[in-house]
């Protein structure tokens, strides 16, 4: 659907190709994070079994990995139009209504993601300046976790705009 945007060599097309590449890399990174988390939890089991020692950081880190996975992997899935949506109403609409509706919904999606990204950024910066930490064993700086939220939301917002533009071109 977004191919029309990234075709050609206009600056916009180049930008969209770059964004698309970034989305793919982030999705790949998200898969890597999942693999690492699985390996870590498995190591925790082995460590208790063979060395009688619990790796206290595993529970915490595998939780963080879910957060990273989700916000870094979400833009790629939107680009591929794979996020779970309820299609029972839209698929029965007459085709001449489907396009405008999809356009409006995509614009709306772009707006809410951008809005969320803005406040996500505000929270991240605040946590950075304030120096807040997680209340856990490892107690990492909170902004090290929160930053993926605005990043993911901005990329999602860009992707929604691309969807809207694609609707117009059709």
């Amino acid at each position: 659907m977004q191919q029309s945007l990234s075709r050609g060599s206009s600056p916009l097309a180049l930008l969209m190709r770059g964004v698309s590449r970034l989305n793919l890399y982030l999705a790949g990174f998200s898969a890597f994070v999942l693999l690492a988390a699985t390996a870590a939890v498995f190591c925790e089991i082995l460590s208790r079994l063979f060395f009688g020692k619990s790796l206290v950081w595993v529970v915490e880190l595998s939780g963080y990995s879910l957060l990273y996975m989700t916000f870094l992997g979400a833009p790629y899935l939107l680009e591929k139009n794979r996020h779970v949506a309820i299609d029972i109403v839209t698929e029965h609409l007459p085709p001449r209504l489907q396009m405008p509706l999809a356009f409006l919904v995509a614009l709306f999606g772009a707006a809410i993601c951008l809005y969320a990204a803005w406040y996500g950024l505000a929270v991240t910066l605040d946590q950075f300046q304030y120096g807040s930490r997680e209340t856990t064993v490892l107690a990492p700086r909170s902004y090290l976790l929160t930053w993926v939220f605005p990043l993911g939301m901005v990329l999602l917002s860009i992707q929604f705009v691309a969807q809207a533009v694609a609707c117009l071109k059709r």
Partner: peptide
């Protein structure tokens, strides 16, 4: 129902 993906409808 308008077709906004579920996660974003919640958002």
């Amino acid at each position: 129902m308008l077709g906004l993906p579920v996660a974003f409808a919640f958002l």
